[in-house]
Design a protein around this nucleic acid. Structure first.
Length: 532
RNA sequence: GCCGAUGUAGCUCAGCUGGUUUAGAGCGCUGGAUUCAUAACCCGGAGGUCGGUGGUUCGAGUCCACCCAUCGGCACCA
């Protein structure tokens, strides 16, 4: 059902100590497709991404390069922003944790949590590596046999004051919340992991550190720096101005809260699924509707790692885009990505097979054969025939074209809304398959040899052309440029805020000029390189 | 170590609460047919003891036990 309700979707903010790679591109592309699809269905969408710029690692990397942490952050944040442009991603804002608007609001949030008693000053004691100036967890200390992995010197017991968030106080509330919202964490397998860990009981978590300074100072105790993850989580709220409800930002954007989807990678699930809702409960703010934790891409069957040097980095991604096109890249991300609980393998061979099978042989070929026949038999002009009540097949019980595509449209949009993006792609493509099946069944190219049967040919091809058009409409959120190309060839335009009207049967009027089109061309298969 | 999964054709996976088949789909491979189309679309074929062993049952990929293998999570890692 179409509605204009505001909707909010976020990516994690990306850590500026990393270089952009397929993981970042994937998460952002998922959000982009959803955002485009929901806008297309008339919703008022706010799509947020950004960079996380504080923390000891950034401080350390900057020091090694002899520049300030801010300079390093500026440089790498710009790199992430460049990706958005390269990929044509449609985020509504890009937040940086070093921006004043963010820092100010985080302090306000933390002050509220201190006032409510949810953040308190406590003492932390643990195993400390004096050479590395860092604490190691108890389990890690045991693994290291209580010796520094670098210097070999014994770890020491050390204490320091830290501010803590009273997570333990939210055990019951979170359990009730999870029970009432079985779709809060997706996919379901991930939710089970969270519930399993909940059974071990929640402990309070430190929210500040004192062993580095690159971060937001604790209000009233600036020797304490707000720990990066709490700083980072708040970006979702500060981007909408929720820290200062009377501010200009909030006036304009508060309507988007709470988020419909926080799309994240599985490695940061705990923060988003447990700590984040608890923080929001403490602040008496509504909790997100869903945290979607996708899995990882692996590369040619192997985990991506620095030591293997097999990261699918920006340069690699750009080489695919150069060869296959941006929309083909998006298609592969969306239909083959690790949205489920298991990792997905990225390989040149697989990419090529998917491209050829789905885009060249199915979508493009159908658009091509249909437009070619209209060119050949009707001089490139859409026949003026009402095909709404024509059945898609002579098979008993086959639906009419208008009913079939109406159902496919509703299903596709529902799947987009539910973040079943690969399923949405398949449903939309099923219209193309139906057109192909119809051509094979009726064989208009044979009927056309008999002048007496041209009315029948007209009826068949008018339905095919309209089917191609509707499929292109529904695939637009995934492949905006290529679908626009097909629609243009089919003499159609698009209202990007009204998918349902655009997808309605009969949009392609008789007399419309239809040009031959071939949106995805066959490309040479990648050469297989034997791996060592 | 603890907790949780998964293991079905070359690959990715469907197979809900046990008995519709001689276990399915897509892709890949292969034979054929065809030309409207980008050697595409269409039809056919190969083929898997449903991880292993032992049970429960008239009957088990489908339930139970054990074993093997793989994977994920295990709090300050964005």
């Amino acid at each position: 059902m179409s509605c204009s309700a505001p909707a909010y979707i976020t990516t994690p903010i990306y850590y500026v100590n990393d270089r952009p790679h397929i993981g970042h591109a994937y998460t952002t592309t998922l959000c982009d497709v959803w955002a485009r699809a929901m806008r297309f269905d008339g919703r008022d969408v706010f799509f947020l991404t950004g960079t996380d710029e504080h923390g000891a690692k950034v401080e350390k990397s900057a020091k090694e390069r002899g520049i300030t942490p801010q300079a390093l952050a500026d440089e790498n944040s710009a790199e992430f922003r460049k990706v958005l442009t390269t990929f044509g991603l449609t985020n509504n804002d890009f937040i940086r944790t070093t921006e004043p608007r963010h820092e100010e609001q985080v302090k306000l949030f933390v002050q509220r949590l201190i006032a409510s008693g949810d953040i308190y000053l406590g003492e932390f004691e643990g195993w400390y590596d004096e050479g590395q100036e860092e604490y190691v967890t108890d389990t890690r200390a045991k693994e290291l046999e209580f010796k520094s992995p670098i210097s070999g010197k014994p770890l020491v017991r050390a204490k320091e004051h830290n501010y803590y968030f009273k997570l333990s106080g939210y055990q019951a509330k979170l359990e009730a919340f999870f029970a009432a919202n079985p779709g809060f964490v997706r996919p379901a397998g991930r939710f089970n992991e969270v519930l399993g860990r909940m059974r071990d009981g929640l402990q309070d978590v430190p929210v500040t550190r004192t062993n580095f300074s690159w971060g937001i100072g604790m209000p009233g105790a600036s020797e304490h720096v707000i720990y990066v993850w709490i700083d980072a989580l708040f970006n979702y709220a500060t981007a909408l101005g929720l820290g200062d409800t009377r501010g200009a930002l909030a006036t304009e954007r508060a309507k988007y809260w709470p988020p419909q989807y926080h799309v994240i990678g599985k490695e940061i699930l705990w923060f988003h699924a447990v700590i984040w809702p608890a923080l929001l409960m403490a602040l008496e703010l509504p909790t997100p509707k869903c945290v979607y934790a996708h899995s990882f891409w692996i590369s040619n069957g192997q985990k991506m790692s620095k030591s293997l040097g097999n990261f699918i980095d920006l340069a690699t991604i750009e080489s695919y885009i150069a060869k296959y096109g941006l929309d083909a890249w998006r298609w592969y991300m969306i239909t083959q990505g690790p949205l489920g609980a298991t990792d997905a393998d990225f390989s040149p061979k697989h990419f090529h097979e998917i491209y050829t099978a789905n885009l060249v042989n199915t979508f493009a070929n159908c658009a091509s054969r249909t437009s070619a026949m209209i060119e050949k038999y009707f001089g490139g002009v859409m026949p003026d025939v009402d095909t709404a009540e024509v059945a898609i097949s002579a098979t008993e019980g086959a639906p009419t074209w208008s009913a079939f595509t109406h159902a496919a449209c509703a299903k596709t949009l529902q799947q987009y809304a539910d973040f079943e993006l690969a399923e949405a792609a398949d449903t939309a493509l099923s219209i193309v398959r139906a057109v192909d099946a119809s051509i094979n069944e009726t064989q208009p190219f044979k009927l056309a040899k008999d002048p007496a049967k041209m009315a029948e040919v007209a009826r068949i091809l008018a339905a095919c052309a309209e089917g191609v058009r509707v499929a292109a409409v529904l695939l637009t959120p995934i492949m905006p440029a290529k679908c626009a190309e097909v629609l243009a060839a089919y003499g159609s335009s698009l209202d990007l805020q009204d998918a349902r009207t655009n997808a309605r049967w009969g949009g392609l009027k008789g007399g419309t000029r239809i040009a031959k089109c071939a949106p995805f061309m066959r490309v040479e298969a990648p050469t297989v390189v034997a791996s060592a």
